[in-house]
Simulated assay, not measured.
Amino acid sequence: MKPFEKCPVCSGELVEKEVEKLLKGGVHTAVLKVHADVCLRCGERLYEAETIKRFEQIRQKLEKQEVAEFQPLGQTFQVL
Rank of each mutant, 00 (worst) to 15 (best):
Gly26Cys: 15
Val27Leu: 07
Val27Lys: 08
Val27Arg: 07
Val27Pro: 00
Val27Ser: 07
His28Gln: 13
His28Met: 13
His28Tyr: 15
Thr29Arg: 07
Thr29Gln: 04
Val31Trp: 04
Val31Leu: 12
Leu32Asn: 02
Leu32Ile: 09
Leu32Gly: 05
Leu32Lys: 02
Leu32Ser: 02
Lys33His: 09
Val34Trp: 01
Val34Pro: 01
Val34Phe: 03
Ala36Thr: 07
Ala36Cys: 12
Ala36Gln: 10
Ala36Asp: 09
Ala36His: 07
Ala36Glu: 10
Asp37Cys: 09
Asp37Ala: 14
Asp37His: 14
Val38Asp: 00
Val38Ile: 14
Val38Lys: 06
Val38Thr: 08
Leu40His: 01
Cys42Ile: 05
Cys42Thr: 01
Gly43Arg: 06
Gly43Gln: 06
Gly43Phe: 08
Glu44Lys: 06
Glu44Pro: 00
Arg45Trp: 02
Arg45Ile: 03
Leu46Pro: 02
Tyr47Leu: 08
Tyr47Ser: 02
Glu48Met: 11
Glu48Ile: 05
Glu48Val: 04
Ala49Glu: 05
Thr51Glu: 07
Thr51Gln: 04
Ile52Pro: 05
Ile52Trp: 09
Ile52Thr: 08
Lys53Glu: 11
Arg54His: 09
Glu56Gln: 11
Glu56Asn: 13
Glu56Asp: 12
Gln57Phe: 10
Gln57Thr: 10
Gln57Asp: 11
Gln60Trp: 00
Lys61Asn: 11
Glu63Gln: 13
Glu63Asn: 03
Gln65Val: 08
Gln65Arg: 14
Glu66Gln: 15
Glu66Gly: 05
Glu66Tyr: 08
Glu66Asp: 14
Val67Lys: 11
Val67Ile: 15
Ala68Arg: 12
Ala68Trp: 09
Glu69Lys: 13
Glu69Ala: 15
Glu69Phe: 13
Phe70Asn: 07
Phe70Thr: 04
Phe70Met: 13
Gln71Trp: 08
Gln71Asp: 11
Pro72Met: 13
Pro72Gln: 08
Leu73Gln: 15
Gly74Lys: 13
Gly74Val: 11
Gly74Glu: 12
Gln75Glu: 15
Thr76Ile: 13
